[in-house]
């Protein structure tokens, strides 16, 4: 077990280093931030430029800048935004909870939908209900998330006026973003639940439970579901990256004050410290969640450790 833990941890650390290195290097390629800060901002002497470079730290060699960035990452100090000079950590501190909250609610919506639907599809294998769920899931997989969001806005905000079209204010503003992501996730999850349920339903303990005369609900939800919970939790955990990616896009439709909005504003303003920090923080979270899922799975199922 210790060997497995160390191996997974080293892999995760490698990935974090690689991502931060690639992102830092790539962002340096885009040009001199000192020049970019003053695009069209009147005349500047060479001394002005030097002073700005020194204050931003970009006069140092790349490796020093990267080490400074790593130091900043550990001490949660990502420097200051080019636009407005706000501390980047503060911007992230405001945006990250908004995105994470949305991620968890979406995940919850999707689990609440996909478990009963997946179980229904598995028990009705090949019959009408199974086919209907399969077609619905394919349609869900084909939906552009940002268009689904736009259509919800058109129906519930513009036409019916039931929900606020954008922003984060009160619980009603969570409904449309969370339902959008929840539906998109459910399209994938329903298939995962169906597949693992089909495997479980063929096992002997399910047969025994049925033979004992337990009610079908007890057999399905208490015996079968519990036994396929571990692979399902793993799948759901590994989806975290895709979920964050989807939320980043959907945030744009709802003007949600999260990491996606922060990132896109940073791209259009060429605000590289912010962009670098957003990408690093999100990647770190995804690597962290994947690591936790792997370790948890390894703890529960010893066969994984030897792979």
């Amino acid at each position: 077990m210790a060997g497995f833990l160390i191996k997974r941890l080293l892999q995760a650390i490698f990935v974090v280093f690689a991502i931060t290195l690639v992102v830092s290097f790539a962002i340096r390629l885009t040009g001199d931030p000192a020049l970019m800060m003053f695009q069209g901002g009147g005349s500047m002497t060479e001394e002005d430029l030097m002073r700005i470079r020194a204050s931003l730290g970009t006069d140092q060699p790349f490796i020093m800048q990267y080490l400074n960035f790593l130091k900043g990452m550990v001490t949660l100090d990502f420097g200051r935004s080019f636009t407005g000079g706000t501390s980047v950590s503060m911007l992230i501190g405001n945006a990250l909870p908004a995105t994470l909250l949305l991620a968890f609610i979406s995940m919850f919506v999707s689990i609440a939908l996909s478990i009963p639907l997946g179980i229904k599809a598995a028990t009705a294998r090949g019959k009408g209900a199974d086919q209907a769920i399969r077609i619905l899931s394919l349609i869900g997989l084909s939906f552009p998330n940002f268009w689904l969001a736009t259509m919800l806005v058109l129906l519930f905000a513009v036409t019916l006026g039931w929900l606020p079209p954008s922003g984060m204010s009160g619980w009603t503003s969570y409904v449309m973003p969370a339902v959008t992501m929840g539906i998109i996730l459910t399209a994938t999850n329903v298939r995962l639940v169906r597949t693992s349920m089909l495997e479980t339903l063929q096992s002997q303990y399910v047969m025994v439970a049925r033979a004992k005369g337990l009610s079908e609900t007890t057999v399905l939800y208490k015996h079968a579901l519990r036994n396929c919970a571990i692979p399902l939790i793993t799948y759901f955990g590994l989806q975290f990256g895709g979920l964050l990616g989807g939320i980043v896009v959907v945030e744009r439709v709802f003007n949600w004050p999260g990491m996606g909005t922060l990132a896109f504003d940073a791209v259009s303003a060429r605000d590289y410290p912010v962009l670098q920090a957003v990408i690093t923080v999100l990647s770190l979270m995804i690597v962290g969640v994947n690591l936790l899922v792997d370790i948890a799975y390894g703890l529960v199922d010893p066969r994984i450790r030897t792979e």
Binding site: V16, L244, G246, A263, I279, L282, S283, I286, V287
Partner: peptide, 8 residues
């Protein structure tokens, strides 16, 4: 790639 979602 697993750690870096497409959109990022």
């Amino acid at each position: 790639q697993l750690a870096m979602p497409f959109i990022l």
